[in-house]
């Protein structure tokens, strides 16, 4: 088990199983579907779509985030149409009116967190 970087060239560092074709993010040594270890690098993004979101009005259990902050689950599509769901912090200002379900978003590269910025309407 090794620690992989989160981003490569501004895209998310995922893994594709060469035996069954399933893409997983984050990348791991084993495929969860066929148990293969034959996994190749597969990059996701930077463009995705917001599947759902919420806003935290509470301090997180761990970490230093200051509420309120919005976050959500984005879908990134692979070349062969697999939907990869990824959670991330949404870069937005109160009252967070630009944050809407099914709207386009783009990854923001960061060392420690997955972050999204909503695309303009």
């Amino acid at each position: 088990m090794k620690r992989e970087p989160l981003f490569i060239d501004g895209k998310l560092n995922a893994g594709k199983c060469n035996d069954c074709g399933v893409v997983r993010f984050p990348r791991r040594d084993y495929c969860n579907y066929c148990q293969s270890t034959n996994i190749s690098e597969y990059l996701l993004g930077p463009q995705g779509k917001l599947e759902t979101f919420t806003i935290s009005y509470m301090k997180p259990m761990i970490g230093r985030m200051k509420p309120p902050y919005p976050y959500g689950v984005a879908i990134f599509l692979t070349d062969d149409g697999q939907k990869i769901h990824v959670i991330g912090l949404i870069d937005s200002q109160e009252p967070f009116e630009d944050v809407k379900i099914d709207k386009g978003l783009i990854l923001i590269e960061d060392k420690l967190l997955i972050k999204f910025k909503m695309e303009a309407d």
Partner: peptide, 23 residues
């Protein structure tokens, strides 16, 4: 907190996952 994927999940909190499902 040095592991990006864990630190990202940590922003979610316990009610968060269910709020995502609710929305």
């Amino acid at each position: 907190m040095k592991l990006p994927i864990v630190s990202t999940f940590s922003i979610m909190g316990l009610p968060g996952y269910f709020a995502l499902a609710a929305h």
